[in-house]
Design a protein around this nucleic acid. Structure first.
Length: 526
RNA sequence: GAGGGUGUAGCUCAGUCGGUAGAGCAGCGGCCUUUUAAGCCGUAGGUCCGGGGUUCGAGUCCCCGCGCCCUCACCA
């Protein structure tokens, strides 16, 4: 079974044989009562060290042997550094919280433990039992009375000073990156705690967390290309969901007043710094609310999460928390304490182009100047499509990236699934939150008139068949059950979707989505 | 999709004008009971991403391909 191994691996296999030869099982056994490196550090006491020294001295002079006052601990970690002085070995072990030194001396450690230390390789996981003390040079150290194997590392570890630098290897072998580069572990833990914090924020405001299908017979709720799969038992085509929206709304129909889901969506599209094919979204619906209700919700979530991260950073205890929460993102300093800016789509448009988005003639002329090639089509093109073209060209960029900003009052024509404003049906009750140029969260007053919804579905289908894309036709389907649900009656509601990955990027100053995902999508290895 | 960068030992990286493939760390053999990237002595380690070309000679120059990173575009 064993083929040829790399030389360095073979040597490690031989060392594993030596562990067995010492009568130990290289892959370890259950160990209760383990402390983390931080807990061990906290248990150290200078006073205990002093008393221990006095006891030793007294014992030498023939006095009674007292109980060692220093804490006795069990600690497990991966061997990061190993200094072999012959009869005394120094091991630097690392766990998820940090590094801790362990000393294994021939005199004080059980013989199997000393033998183990002698054949340990960098990267092995070991368990140390011992007293917490401080060395002459002031380093908190576990002076081992026993050392046990927990796992053999057969693979040569990364270079000990620089860690694992190769970006591709870091993503592909996250299991190495996590222990070789402590920042990676920190980032992963911070993400987890941010998500947990967001969850608690929602729950405290009466939102019920639910889980809705990820395998769907129709991939609705957003305009995106889905992943297609097949279910054997029923012999049907299934789609990975692109959004949970239509299911969450069904729950409002059923009478749930406030619901949210934090989970994965799948979109069969390109990869870049802001897009991974599977990504995590918080989607929330608030019955008897509207777009304003959920804008306030998002602002609260983002501010709370930012304050949490800022608090984590201002680690030194005793310092008063800063009056304002300001977090860096690249060159930007983003202030999350101030009320988020608001600007209407129309205002931004006018600021960018110098005329109203309702001025059909000027819109057409400007678009022609921008894209002369469109001359033939410009007379038949929808006015609002042209407006949006111009908007994306110049207006979006006018938003100050360092100020979280809601863009409100989008044209209804480009927001097909949103309820038009009561006082101006050409505008939609929709607002998008932008931070640092990233679209972080859209907000809507949800459509709940079944007849309008049905018409929109139909319109969308026609829009697709009008284009030549036959493939799209196969997954843009009319969701009859959703219309049926609306016929039963869905209360008016506000809904929003917050990109969790992007939120974490912003709060943790990571420029690429891959650095906030533990296992980003990668091309398969050859 | 276009442009730029990059690929050398297990890891991190040098490699000049085209002239025998290098360092540090890790490894291996020794010595060492207070080290801190431990130290000292000795030693081994290469498909220079792949293929083709130019040349007496290619890690280096040229062409094709592949992976990864960055920028832009597209898609949403």
């Amino acid at each position: 079974m064993s083929e040829e191994h790399h030389k360095l691996e073979s040597q490690r296999r031989e060392n594993r044989g030596q562990v067995e030869a010492a009568g130990l099982y290289p892959y370890g056994l259950r160990e209760d009562g383990l402390l983390t490196s931080r807990q061990v550090r906290d248990l150290h006491s200078d006073e205990a060290d002093t008393r221990a020294a006095e006891l030793t001295k007294a014992a030498k002079e023939g006095g009674p042997a007292g109980e060692d006052p220093r804490a006795l601990v069990r600690f497990a970690g991966r061997v990061m550094l190993l200094r072999d002085n012959g009869k005394l070995l120094w091991l630097t072990l690392r766990d998820h919280e940090g590094d801790l030194q362990v000393a294994v001396s021939q005199k004080d450690c059980a013989p199997e433990g000393f033998a183990l230390a002698k054949c340990t390789d960098l990267g092995d996981v070991v368990i140390a039992h011992g007293r917490v003390m401080k060395t002459r040079t002031g380093e908190i150290t576990v002076w081992a009375s026993a050392l046990k194997p927990a796992a053999k590392c057969l693979v040569p570890p990364p270079e000990k000073h620089s860690g694992l630098q190769d970006v591709e290897l870091r993503y592909r072998q996250r299991y190495v990156d996590l222990w070789a580069n402590p920042e990676t572990m920190q980032a992963a833990r911070l993400r987890s705690r941010i998500v947990s914090r967001v969850r608690r924020f929602m729950e405290e405001r009466g939102y019920l967390e639910v889980e809705t299908p990820m395998l769907q017979t129709l991939a609705g709720g957003a305009a995106a290309r889905p992943f297609v799969t097949h279910m054997n038992a029923l012999d049907i085509k299934l789609f990975m969901r692109i959004a949970p929206e239509l299911y969450l709304k069904r729950l409002l129909v059923g009478g749930m007043p406030r619901v949210f889901e934090i989970n994965r969506n799948f979109r069969n599209e390109g990869l870049d710094k802001q897009h991974n094919p599977e990504f995590t979204m918080l989607e929330a619906y608030h019955a008897f609310g509207d777009v304003e209700t959920v804008m306030e919700l998002t602002e609260g979530i983002v501010r709370d999460a930012a304050a949490f991260v800022a608090g984590e950073r201002a680690a030194p205890a005793g310092h008063a928390p800063p009056a304002e929460v300001v977090l860096p993102f690249g060159d930007l300093s983003i202030n999350y304490s101030r009320p988020f800016d608001r600007v209407t789509y129309g205002q931004l448009f006018e600021k960018a182009w110098g005329f109203s988005m309702r001025d059909a003639q000027q819109v057409r002329d400007a678009l022609l100047r921008l894209h002369p090639g469109l001359a033939a089509r410009v007379n038949t093109m929808d006015h609002w499509l042209m407006v949006n073209e111009l908007f994306e060209e110049k207006a979006e960029r006018l938003v100050d990236p360092s100020r979280p900003t809601f863009i409100t009052d989008y044209p209804a024509a480009i927001s097909p699934l949103t309820r038009p404003k009561r006082d101006d049906p050409t505008l939609a009750d929709r607002a998008d939150l932008f931070i640092a140029g990233m679209e972080v969260a859209p907000h809507y007053t949800e459509l709940n008139d079944p007849d309008v919804q049905e018409a929109k579905f139909r319109e969308q289908l026609q829009g697709v068949s009008a284009e030549k894309n036959a493939e799209e036709q196969t997954f843009r389907t009319f969701d009859h059950d959703f219309v049926r649900a609306l016929k039963v009656g869905m209360p008016p509601a506000g809904g929003m979707g917050l990109g969790i990955d992007r939120l974490v990027m912003l709060l943790t100053d990571q420029r690429t989505i891959r650095d906030v995902l533990l296992f980003p999508m990668m091309r398969p290895e050859v």
